[in-house]
Nucleic acid binder design. Structure first.
Lengths: 341, 341
DNA sequence: GAGAATCTTGCACGCCTGTGCAGGACCGTC
DNA sequence: GACGGTCCTGCACAGGCGTGCAAGATTCTC
């Protein structure tokens, strides 16, 4: 007796069963579902009817076993519940789906051992590519992907290793522009609010702002606290606004920090924005546009980035070459937390 | 010699190659990576060394071809950039990873044809289960999953079809409680703000609130506008607050709506909350706790839900039975948009 | 030291698909 | 009617893996 172990009743249908029902060979079934294969209209019709009746779908696991492409793309992200990250994931998954790919999402926020296991897990599915969203996933994870021959795409990171392609936003230009905006608004005392998370983008924004201030003969202080979150921005405001010589021009490297900073400045210190203190953020998350904030900030072209990243999947990159990053410009969005000049 | 030979950029390393290098049969390699298989310590060691040197990992595609379990779980969500949804996905992916599963994320926000294609795509990977997050994915999608013998888990939905398991939050109880809170705060004229999206949860909250009002001999109006978003809440406020007999007790079926409503009430109408108008939300998104809002709302126990859902994956459900939903209670979070009694 | 018991190991098959190859059916032409 | 050409179709193999089975190796028992 050759009957498969279909006893559990609800197992999946295979091409073999469709072939038997349609009275053709399994090859005919396979060709019916393969683009450009040669099948006569008559058999094609019979196969399709049998497939429909049995509820057959080709098994992508087996198909991926043969082709070198599994159509799976691995997306690695930290803090994925954050407004900016979730918007990025939203855009990415939409574009991936439009390109007939499917996203495996790896959340690197958890315990690092579990993360490593999950990544390993995903890699073993022979993903076509791995997209690493900004954040602090250790460089060793990227190394792992590269060693497995993965096509790696880095977003808003700055790892000068050969292999991966990189997409970044013009952090430094924007940060310099942020200083100019504050300077022209008449600010005299500057501060940059950032977190203890040393992400490449965040560091770039911080240092570029400081350099701009220095080269304009101004001093600027740095407040570096906790994670890149609302609470850190709030705490930063509490620490820096008590001083008698408080800053009047503040650059928060993230909108989330800026929201926290603004709330404390207004609620706990009764400051009027932008009259007494000007604030510039970064990312242009949805909340920046809410009327409680009306935050002047820089927009990350999330949709364009996602589109470009997915486009990158088509051509295999040259290995062992340091790829120059593709840059997308972060444009200022003028709202109401900086005085117009 | 420690350099991975993957440099050729060719295909992945197979168990065959490891076997040759280790001087054993392919079976020995397979058994080395299979729990509970019988391998002598000596050969196991040689296999592991060869695997390490070659950078070998078992191919989960092939493994999933044999076992009936692929360890892939399909997560379907709408509006995944939303604070509540993204937090749900964050929790789910973390718990899935801890359970050695990996998440395939399907974004159903896009064009419906593309969505159908993406879901079909994911199904073909023989996912162990499909988790449907609240939203309006058509019931036909769920039908498709069920027909394919999928283990379907519905979160905050209310489809009375046999097969799927369901997890919900106590929407009706919470909505009644919301009415009580507003009533005890002395409100006289009630309104519920909702969207044109007829999600089961949203409808349940709305109707339960209206019933509670009616049975207490109060009238309550309904403002139903656009998508479930900040802008809709804002627009609702604009429409309802112009009237001379404006409501003073408002239940927004979502925190996002509540934030929009609050901002317009304060900014455009100069109303003082909670003195002139009380507002209750639902979800307890992060922004509800920000000092600009301090929104009184109901907390969805996201982490508990995720934990329970992942636990559900272990036992195969009885098919063709309508499963009674598992209920998680949404507890009130008192902040400052409702007067204390 | 012989036989029994246990542990290892390789062989071969199966999972589900795509595809080169060769043979067969069919058509048109002379 | 023969023949060359085109179009289908089935066979058989490949792809990477898990596993039952039986043979070989090792250990144990008396």
């Amino acid at each position: 007796m050759k009957t498969p172990v279909r006893a559990r009743g609800k197992s999946f249908v295979s091409a073999q069963q469709v072939a038997e029902r349609a009275g053709v060979s399994r090859s005919a079934v396979s060709r019916t579902f393969t683009d450009g294969a040669s099948v006569s209209p008559a058999t094609r019709k019979r196969v399709l009817e049998a497939a429909e009746a049995l509820g057959y779908h080709v098994n992508h696991l087996a198909r991926g076993l043969i082709h070198d492409s599994s159509n799976i793309v691995c997306v690695i992200g930290t803090d994925i519940a954050t407004p900016h990250q979730s918007r990025m994931i939203d855009a990415l998954t939409r574009h991936l789906q439009a390109a007939q790919k499917v996203a495996m999402l790896i959340n690197t926020s958890g315990e690092s051992a579990a993360v490593e296991a999950a990544l390993r897990q995903a890699l073993h599915y022979r993903a076509d590519a791995t997209i690493v969203l900004s954040g602090q996933p250790a460089a060793s994870l990227i190394e792992t992907c590269l060693n497995n021959g993965q096509h790696v795409i880095l977003v808003n990171r700055d790892d000068p290793v050969p292999g991966p392609e990189t997409v970044v936003v013009t952090n430094r230009t924007a940060a310099r522009q942020a200083f100019d905006m504050l300077r022209r608004a008449g600010c005299q005392k500057f501060a940059v609010v950032t977190s203890t998370v040393g992400t490449a983008s965040l560091v770039a924004r911080e240092t570029a702002f400081l350099e701009a201030a220095r080269s304009a003969q101004f001093d600027a202080s740095v407040i570096r606290l906790g994670p890149t979150a609302y609470a850190s921005g709030a705490e930063a405001a509490r620490q820096v606004l008590v001083s008698t010589s408080r800053p009047d021009g503040v650059f928060c490297v993230t909108d989330l920090l800026a929201c926290g900073f603004l709330d404390v400045a207004r609620t706990e210190f009764g400051l009027v924005v932008p009259d007494e203190v000007c604030v510039v953020g970064f990312d242009d998350i949805e909340q920046a546009g809410w009327s409680s904030y009306q935050l002047t900030t820089f927009r990350q072209p999330v949709d364009q980035i996602a589109d470009h990243v997915v486009g990158l999947l088509h051509h295999q990159p040259a290995v062992h070459t340091i790829q120059p990053p593709t840059r997308f410009s972060a444009e200022p969005v003028w709202r109401k937390t900086v005085r117009p000049r």
